[in-house]
Amino acid sequence: MFSMMLREWRTQRGMSQLDLALSAEVSTRHVSFIESERSKPSAEMVLRLAEALDLPLRERNAMLVAAGFAPQFGDSRWDSPEMEEVRRAATLLLAAHAPYPALVLDMAFNILDANPAALEMIGADRTVLGKVNLVDLVFMPGQVRDSIVNWSDVAEYLLHRMREGVRRHGPQSAMGTVMRRAMMQPGTAALSMVRSHWRGSVLLPLAFHANGQTTRWFTTVTSFGAPQDAMAEEITIEQFHPNPG
Rank of each mutant, 00 (worst) to 15 (best):
H97Q: 11
D229T: 04
A124D: 04
V194K: 05
T236A: 10
V135D: 00
R13W: 08
Q185F: 00
L47K: 07
M179E: 04
Q17V: 09
A232D: 04
E59K: 15
F224Y: 14
T215S: 15
M193N: 11
Q12F: 11
V135G: 00
V166Y: 02
M162P: 00
E164N: 03
N133C: 05
H97Y: 01
A124V: 05
R38V: 02
E84P: 00
A90H: 04
S223K: 12
M4I: 14
A21K: 07
G245F: 12
M140W: 04
L134A: 11
A189L: 06
F208E: 01
V202P: 00
L18K: 12
L159N: 00
A232V: 14
D79H: 12
A24E: 03
A210M: 12
L112D: 02
I111K: 06
A108Y: 04
T214L: 08
S3R: 14
T215F: 01
T220S: 13
H209P: 00
N211L: 12
P205E: 03
Q143T: 13
L204K: 08
A114Q: 05
P186D: 04
A90R: 09
G200V: 02
Y100I: 02
Q12V: 02
E85V: 13
V202R: 14
R87D: 06
R216E: 04
L64Q: 14
F208M: 13
S147R: 15
V149R: 08
